[in-house]
């Protein structure tokens, strides 16, 4: 127990970094997802193909490859970025691809007849998005969004491989010093589990509140 207390500051630091990265990635991913899904749904052909290629590429390469590519690649092109930024950028691109598909699916699941009715009372595109599409799509998108958030928290551990001191790296450093691998891996597991399990429960509760129609 005293060993855990000794490692606590580093663990908390790692936890904070993991939380920051996860939030930043989710934000970036959600914004990219909104643009991506609108492009896939309503964009001109060229735009739709570009987003399609972006989504399909992200679905076919490992997260770690993009993290390394950006982390080592940007300096080679002359752009010095801190490792944490490279990590957020890479994971954000993946998240954006994922979100584009989720948002697109949510909108497409709204019956087409409602679009006809909304158009026929004279609502503009923006009004249809605001009053008809968004409220209904939200309830359908939320579970998938929360699942993606959980995946992001897990993927954030990969930034430890480019030497960012997140929770996983913090635990590795403590294990390196104290050799108490089992204890601290268990601590890390419990922390990750606590975060993700809470996310899932919150998601399920929100889904129940928003889930009508």
């Amino acid at each position: 127990m005293p060993m855990i207390l000794a490692g606590l500051p580093l663990i908390l630091h790692g936890l904070l970094v993991t939380a920051t990265i996860s939030l930043a990635v989710l934000l970036l991913g959600t914004v990219l997802g909104i643009f991506g899904s609108l492009s896939l749904l309503y964009g001109a052909n060229v735009l739709r193909w570009c987003v399609r290629i972006y989504v399909d590429v992200c679905r076919s390469i490992p997260h770690l490859v993009l993290i390394f590519a950006i982390f080592y690649g940007l300096p080679a092109l002359g752009l010095q970025v801190p490792a944490i930024v490279a990590g957020i950028l890479a994971l954000g691109l993946f998240c954006g691809a994922h979100m584009s598909e989720i948002f697109r699916g949510g909108v497409e699941s709204i019956p087409h007849g409602q679009m006809d009715a909304a158009k026929s009372i004279g609502l503009t595109f923006a009004q249809r998005l605001r009053h008809i599409i968004f409220p209904q799509a939200l309830g359908r998108i939320l579970p998938a969004w929360v699942n993606t958030a959980v995946e992001i928290v897990k993927s954030s551990s990969l930034v430890s491989l480019v030497s960012v001191v997140d929770l996983t790296m913090a635990i590795q450093q403590i294990v390196g010093r104290t050799r108490e691998a089992l204890l601290f891996y268990a601590v890390a597991a419990m922390l990750y589990f606590a975060i993700n399990f809470t996310l899932s429960i919150t998601g399920r509760r929100l889904e129940r509140k928003l889930g009508h129609g």
Binding site: V150, K154, S155, S157, T168, A181, Y185, A189, Y192, F193
Partner: peptide, 13 residues
């Protein structure tokens, strides 16, 4: 709910 990397470390180390 836990990262793959953590499971790898647990098994290997």
């Amino acid at each position: 709910n836990i990262p793959l990397l953590l499971i790898i470390y647990f098994v290997y180390f």
